[in-house]
Design a protein around this nucleic acid. Structure first.
Length: 450
RNA sequence: GGCCCUAUCGUCUAACGGUUAGGACGGAGGCUUUUCAAGCCUUAAAUCCGGGUUCGAUUCCCGGUAGGGUCACCA
C-alpha cells in the first residue's frame, strides 16, 4: 500500500515546510507547504514548520509573521515549529564532527572578495556521481565533481543552507522532503553531506514550480501577490486551497470542487504533474464563486459584512445579500458594488440621473413613462410597509406591467429607483429601499418627467 | 554557456499502445430576461519537430527544438 514510506523506523511520515523569511509568502511557497502538509496528514504523520533564517541580513521578523499568518488563514496547521537561528549549537556540533572526520576543513580564502571572510568551512567533495529516485520524477543522476568543495559555514557559528538543511532534516526525523523543483540541483550536495554523516537521505519529491504568466518562476517581482492579499480581498480560504491543490494535482475523476478532507484522502505524489503550472487568477475567482454559492445567506452576510460600508444598516444589509451574492466573486466586490457609482450604490443614495434615462428604448415617450410610474405608485400604496418584500412588490406591479408592456413599465420603475442602467430588478431594489424611500423616488421621477 | 528538469486546446488538465484526443477556466454564439450579470445550451481551440520500435503511437526509445530551473561566504 504505502510503498513509498520509508526512512523512519516506525514507518511514520514526517514532512516539513522550510521557508526563508526573506520575502512575503506567495502562492508558490504556499502550494509547497500545502502538498507537504497533505502528505503528512494523509499518512497520519506530522508536519513541521521550520523557519530558515540563517541569513541574518535578509531575514525579517515581519516576513516570518506573514508566513505564519498565511498558513493560519489557509488552515494549514503544523505539529512543531523551529527557527534555525536558535539552533546554532547543534550546527556547531555537526560542523566540528565533519571537520574531525575529515569531511570538512577550514579553508583559507585567497583574494578575499569584498565582504568575504578570510577563512570559511568547506565540505571536502569526494567528486562522486550521486543518484536518487525522486518520487515524482524518477531516477536523477549528477556528477558532483564540478561542484567543488562547497562552503557549509562562514564560521563555526554561521552555518549555511546545505549544512543546516541536512542537519535539521536528520535531527527532526524528516522522512519525505517535498519541495520545489528549484531544489533538484541542491539535492546532490545534500546527499553528499548525509553520506559524510553516515546517514541515509530521506525520500525526495520535487514538485513542479508555480509559474507567472510569462512562464518564469513565480516570485514577488513578477506578479505574485502575498497570500494575505487574497484574504484581504475576501476570498474564502477553502476556495484558494482547493484551487492550489489542483495546480499540479487532481483527483482521479473530473471533479474540480473538492473538499479539503477528500483532497487529503485522495492525494498521491504519483499523480503530481511534472511540468510547471501557471497561476490563473480567473480560475481562482471561479473557484471562489463556487464556494460562495455554497454558503447560506447568513454565512455570506457574516463574511461580507466587514466589507460593506458602515453606513448600511443591519436590516438593509440583510436585504442586500441576495443582490450581492449574484454579483460578487469575492467579498471585496461587496464594497465596490455598494460604493457610490457602483452597481448597488443606489442603496445608500440615489445618484443624479438624466430624465431621458427613464424612457424605455423601444417606446421613448415621456407622458407614457410618467403615467406608468403613477400607476406603479398607486399599486404600491396598497402594499404595507412592513411587508414590502420583492415578492409583494412584484405581485402588486406585475399585472399592470403585463398589460402595458413589461419594458414600458419596468424600465422607468428601475431607473426611478436606482438612477442607473446597470442595476438589479426593480422589485429587489424596492425591497432594499423600503416603502417610504421607494415612493419618494417614484415621485421624484414623475416630477422630472413633467 | 555547463549541469538538471519539462513538453496535449490561450490556461489547468484527462486519455497509463487502439478514443470522433475528454473535462474545466477563459473566448465566441444562442436561450432566458425590463439592463448587466448569473444560469442553461451550442461552438471554436491542442498532442513541439524528426527518426525509430510496433499491425498501430499523445503514450515506449533516440535525436533535435523550445521553455524552465540551477550554477553564492542566499535559501
Amino acid at each position: 500500500m504505502k510503498k513509498d514510506v520509508k526512512g523512519s523506523p516506525a514507518g511514520r511520515v514526517v514532512t516539513r515546510f522550510a521557508p526563508s523569511p526573506t520575502g512575503y509568502f506567495h502562492a508558490g511557497s504556499y502550494r509547497t507547504a500545502l502538498f507537504s502538509c497533505i502528505y503528512a496528514r494523509q499518512h497520519g504523520g506530522s508536519f513541521i514548520l521550520r523557519i530558515e533564517d540563517t541569513d541574518k541580513e535578509r531575514s525579517k521578523k515581519e516576513y516570518e509573521k506573514n508566513i505564519v499568518d498565511s498558513l493560519e488563514w489557509m488552515g494549514l496547521s503544523y505539529d512543531a515549529f523551529y527557527r534555525q537561528s536558535e539552533r546554532t549549537e547543534i550546527y556547531r556540533r555537526y560542523i566540528q564532527r565533519l571537520i574531525d572526520s575529515g569531511h570538512a576543513y577550514v579553508s583559507k580564502e585567497a583574494g578575499g572578495k569584498e565582504g568575504g571572510r578570510e577563512e570559511v568551512i568547506r565540505f571536502r567533495n569526494p567528486g562522486r556521481t550521486v543518484a536518487f529516485d525522486d518520487l515524482i520524477r524518477g531516477h536523477i543522476e549528477f556528477d558532483t565533481a564540478e561542484l567543488g568543495d562547497f562552503v557549509i559555514a562562514k564560521s563555526m557559528d554561521e552555518p549555511v543552507f546545505h549544512l543546516v538543511v541536512v542537519v535539521d532534516d536528520r535531527e527532526m526525523g524528516i522522512t519525505h522532503i517535498i519541495r520545489g523543483e528549484d531544489h533538484i540541483s541542491n539535492t546532490p550536495r545534500q546527499i553528499l553531506i548525509y553520506e559524510a554523516l553516515g546517514a541515509t537521505p530521506p525520500a525526495y519529491a520535487h514538485i513542479p514550480l508555480l509559474l507567472a504568466a510569462d512562464r518564469s518562476k513565480l516570485s514577488k517581482r513578477n506578479g505574485a501577490k502575498p497570500v494575505t492579499a487574497y484574504r484581504d480581498e475576501g476570498y474564502l480560504p477553502e476556495a484558494v486551497v482547493n484551487y492550489m491543490a489542483l495546480l499540479g494535482w487532481h483527483p482521479a475523476d473530473d471533479r474540480e470542487v473538492v473538499p479539503f478532507g477528500d483532497i487529503v484522502k485522495e492525494f498521491s505524489l504519483e499523480r503530481v504533474q511534472k511540468s510547471g503550472a501557471i497561476f490563473d487568477e480567473e480560475k481562482l475567482a471561479w473557484f471562489n464563486r463556487q464556494y460562495l454559492q455554497r454558503l447560506d445567506d447568513g454565512a455570506f452576510l457574516a463574511g461580507a459584512r466587514p466589507f460593506m460600508p458602515a453606513s448600511i444598516a443591519e436590516d438593509a444589509a440583510v436585504r442586500l445579500v441576495p443582490l450581492l451574492r449574484e454579483k460578487a466573486r469575492c467579498y471585496a466586490d461587496a464594497a465596490r458594488l455598494l460604493a457610490p457609482g457602483g452597481e448597488l450604490g443606489f442603496a445608500a443614495a440615489l445618484p443624479a440621473y438624466d430624465p431621458e434615462m427613464l424612457l424605455w428604448k423601444k417606446a421613448p415617450d415621456k407622458a407614457a413613462a410618467a403615467a406608468h410610474l403613477a400607476a406603479v405608485k398607486a399599486a404600491l400604496e396598497a402594499v404595507p410597509a412592513a411587508g414590502f418584500s420583492a415578492d409583494a412588490v412584484k405581485a402588486a406591479v406585475w399585472p399592470y406591467a403585463e398589460a402595458k408592456g413589461r419594458g414600458d413599465v419596468l424600465w422607468p420603475f428601475r431607473i426611478a429607483l436606482t438612477g442607473q442602467e446597470r442595476s438589479p430588478d426593480p422589485f429587489a431594489s424596492a425591497a432594499v429601499l423600503g416603502k417610504e424611500e421607494t415612493m419618494a423616488r417614484i415621485r421624484a421621477a414623475i416630477a422630472q418627467l413633467g
